[in-house]
Design a binder for these strands. Structure first.
Lengths: 115, 115
DNA sequence: TTTCAGTATGTTTTTAAAAGAATACTGATG
DNA sequence: CATCAGTATTCTTTTAAAAACATACTGAAA
C-alpha cells in the first residue's frame, strides 16, 4: 500500500571470545574447504585467497579454540595436508544451526519496512 | 562443567535495499549525532569522523530512502545546519526496535557455546 | 638420499579506503 | 553588502589491509 521501495533486513553473526571476534562465516567457509580439499593450500586456491592468509586464519582458530579445529599434517607423501578435527566439524554444524535460527527469526519478525 | 573459555554470539544487522546495504548502526549513530548537534559538521566532530565522509553518508541515505532522512539548511544565520525529518526520527526508532528484538532472541537462544 | 607437495614464516608491493587539505557556495543578519 | 558558520565538492595524502613474492622446513616413499 503505497510502499514503493523494498527494504529487507540482513543479519551477520559471529562467535566472540575474550580477545575479540573468533569465528564468523569467513572462517567457516575456510573450514569447509579444508574438509573438501584436504589441505590449506587447496582450500585457499578454491577460495581465491592467499595461502598465507588462510594459514594465519587456521592458526588463529586453533590457538583460540579450546581444542584445535584443524589438524595439520607435515611432510610425508604428498607433502602433508590438513583435516578437520571433531571440534572443527562441530564448529561448522553449530555455527550454521545458530545462524539459521537467528536469520529465520529475523525474517519472520520483520516486514513492511518503510523509510 | 569443564567449559573453561567463554564464547558469546554477536549480531550485526542492517537494512538492505536494491542497491545494497542501506542503513546500519553507523548511519544510525550519525543520525543521532545530527539530531543532537544540529549540523553535519558537529555530528562528524562528535564522532571523530571527517565531515566529507559524514556528508556522503547523509547524501546516500537521503537519495536511497523514499523520503529524505535529513533536512539540510543552507546559508543564513550560523551558516545553516541539518536536522532530522520525520522519516529520519522514525528510522532511528524502527532500527533500534528491530535490533533489540533480534539481539534479545540471539542471546536467549544461544548459550553454552563450546569450541 | 632425492623428490615432492604441503606447511611455516618473513619481506615487499599493491590497493582500496579513509583522512586531510583546499576552495567555492549559501543566505539570514547586522 | 560584508560577515560568518555550515554545506558542497574536488583533489591530494596517508594508512592499513590484502596480496604477492620469496624461501625454509617437513617426512613418507621411491
Amino acid at each position: 500500500m503505497g510502499n514503493s521501495k523494498k527494504y529487507s533486513i540482513e543479519v551477520r553473526l559471529w562467535i566472540e571470545e575474550a580477545e575479540g571476534p573468533f569465528l564468523g562465516i569467513g572462517k567457516i567457509w575456510l573450514l569447509e574447504n579444508i574438509r573438501k580439499t584436504g589441505s590449506i593450500t587447496n582450500a585457499a586456491k578454491e577460495m581465491k585467497m592467499a595461502y598465507r592468509q588462510a594459514w594465519q586464519l587456521v592458526e588463529e582458530m586453533n590457538l583460540r579454540a579450546e581444542s584445535p579445529l584443524v589438524e595439520k599434517l607435515l611432510g610425508g607423501k604428498g607433502g602433508g595436508g590438513a583435516r578437520l578435527t571433531e571440534a572443527g566439524e562441530n564448529a561448522i554444524t553449530v555455527f550454521y544451526e545458530i545462524e539459521k535460527r537467528i536469520k529465520d527469526f529475523a525474517q519472520k519478525e520483520v516486514q513492511n519496512l518503510k523509510f
